[in-house]
């Protein structure tokens, strides 16, 4: 048995909610002197235990504000957990928000290298993948146009093409399949399904139970920062559907 791809142990994530946002020195000192610096503790995630084996495709379901995106960010290493530990074995490709690393003054071509570097890939590697990325994004004609002139769909397409070209071990998808037109959505779903054959591990967040059923073999439900159910995808999706129709 090989090591699990992702191991999350007793992980909690706490945020300080400032009752008022203090972002300049004057206010800070005045508030400090008046002892008005109140922080409300907010536990976005509480005591999460999650083990994802290699090749598992886990759907994460939950209502808005349940902590889904926070969980993904902690696993991607963007946020550091307040307590507990997260162990990841393998290369992660986060697709939290497509095109987040783009510089809008840079052309499409230059952004491919920049985005690749942001994900930790060398220039040589991206050069090898360049044609594949351009072909998949269908933006051949726009490679020398600054990204600021791209439509949001074009950005998302380019972002998806880069993020999926790098053959990661672990793929993190946060509602990314809802971007682009129906045709591109189909294409990107196809691309992700083809990555499954190579044994990629997937964490998938979606509000669409259908998509989760199509892509995942396992699922968990998050509610108020806790995992309230986990198991096989179809069972969990049933539970989730009941929760939704239960008017909770």
């Amino acid at each position: 048995m090989s090591k699990p791809a992702i191991e999350v142990k007793n992980m909690s994530m706490m945020f300080n909610l400032n009752s008022e946002k203090v972002d300049n020195l004057k206010e800070y000192f005045i508030k400090l002197l008046k002892r008005q610096l109140h922080f409300t503790e907010f536990w976005a995630l509480k005591d999460i235990n999650l083990t994802v084996e290699k090749g598992d495709r886990v759907g994460i379901l939950g209502f808005n504000g349940a902590g889904k995106s926070t969980l993904l960010k902690v696993i991607a290493g963007v946020l550091k957990p307040t307590q507990g530990s997260v162990k990841v074995n393998g290369v992660i490709a986060p697709m939290l928000e497509l095109g987040a690393g783009f510089d809008s003054n840079y052309s499409g071509k230059e952004n491919i290298y920049l985005y690749g570097a942001t994900m930790g890939y060398s220039r040589k590697f991206i050069e090898r993948k360049y044609d594949e990325i351009v072909a998949f994004s269908e933006l051949q004609k726009f490679m020398d146009v600054p990204v600021k002139n791209y439509s949001s769909g074009m950005r998302a397409r380019l972002g998806f093409a880069i993020a999926s070209a790098v053959e990661p071990d672990i793929l993190i998808l946060d509602e990314v399949l809802s971007v682009g037109d129906a045709k591109f959505r189909k294409k990107s779903e196809g691309k992700i399904l083809s990555m499954f054959d190579k044994g990629v591990t997937v964490l998938f967040v979606s509000h669409s139970v259908d998509q989760v059923l199509k892509i995942c073999n396992k699922a968990i439900i998050l509610d108020k920062g806790q995992i309230i159910a986990s198991g096989e995808a179809n069972e969990i999706c049933d539970t989730y559907n009941k929760m939704v129709s239960g008017g909770k």
Binding site: D103, N105, Y106, E110, Y113, L114, G116, A117, T118, G120, Y121, S122, R123
Partner: peptide, 15 residues
């Protein structure tokens, strides 16, 4: 991540 450093330096100068 040395590649990223290189890309950002390049980007700053180019832009």
């Amino acid at each position: 991540y040395r590649g990223l450093m290189y890309e950002i330096v390049r980007k700053n100068i180019k832009l």
